[in-house]
């Protein structure tokens, strides 16, 4: 089963592409460190999102060429960035006012686990070591939409979409949509609602690798993504 899924599942770039299709023109967007940052590369033609980084920049652009970095100009992942016309700098309290104050349209984050009630676990596996949270617990509150991009299952084949998270929570009831390597799933009224799935995958096979019931309301769309 997991070999069959590995053969058809979307790559991280393809998951990021799918998530990018839902970002409206003019949206203010925060992308989590790492995998979610890829969403910026796949802005649909003719739409412009304004990206926020919690260390204090709105309207940043791509990474500079190697050798042209300015280390006062970095993103939350401490990588060098560039500015687009109309960008702005601000201090951390203003930056998190944008986050918690409901001014961001979309936050897109990674996940270890997502529960059917919208609980998110993405900051600690709970196994010890040095704990580090950064802005994750702030970002899950305030954005009008909090979306997750993730593999549908772990490397060991365990479901990441669950009836309840077993790892330490980042936030309670905060996720509104999950883009996985197999499906697009909304969270509504404490339930997973399947919106799209890979056409090559049957509903039953998808349900078998999902740790809570997938509900269907109306038609389930085909999750079709370019090769990239």
């Amino acid at each position: 089963m997991s070999d069959a899924i590995n053969a058809i599942k979307l790559s991280n770039a393809q998951i990021a592409w799918r998530a990018a299709q839902d970002i409206e023109d003019g949206a203010y967007v925060n992308l989590g460190i790492g995998f979610p940052e890829m969403v910026a590369k796949f802005q649909p033609e003719g739409r412009e999102a304004i990206f926020h980084t919690e260390n204090g920049v709105l309207g940043f652009g791509e990474a500079p060429k190697e050798g042209e970095e300015d280390w006062d100009l970095i993103n939350a992942g401490k990588k060098a960035i560039t500015l687009k016309p109309g960008s702005a700098f601000f201090h951390h309290a203003d930056s998190f006012s944008m986050v918690r104050g409901g001014h961001l349209d979309v936050a897109i984050l990674g996940a270890y686990q997502v529960a059917q009630n919208g609980d998110l676990a993405n900051w600690s596996t709970g196994k010890g070591g040095v704990p580090a949270v950064g802005g994750a617990m702030d970002l899950v509150h305030g954005a009008k939409r909090v979306a997750v991009v993730t593999d549908h299952i772990t490397k060991k084949g365990d479901p990441k979409l669950l009836d309840a998270c077993t790892m330490p929570l980042t936030g309670v009831g905060c996720v509104t949509r999950v883009y996985t390597s197999l499906a697009v799933v909304d969270i509504e009224d404490g339930q997973f609602v399947l919106r799209e799935k890979l056409p090559a995958l049957s509903f039953d096979d998808l349900q078998a690798v999902t740790g809570a019931p997938l509900n269907v309301q109306g038609t389930v769309g085909d999750l079709i993504v370019p090769a990239l």
Binding site: E54, H92, S95, V99, V130, M137
Partner: peptide, 23 residues
């Protein structure tokens, strides 16, 4: 530098979410 001392119990950590720290 931090990790080694933290795991040996030689340095304390108060972990605060980033926006909460700022506020």
């Amino acid at each position: 530098a931090f990790t080694e001392r933290y795991l040996e119990g030689r340095i304390e950590l108060e972990l605060v979410p980033q926006g909460t720290l700022a506020e």
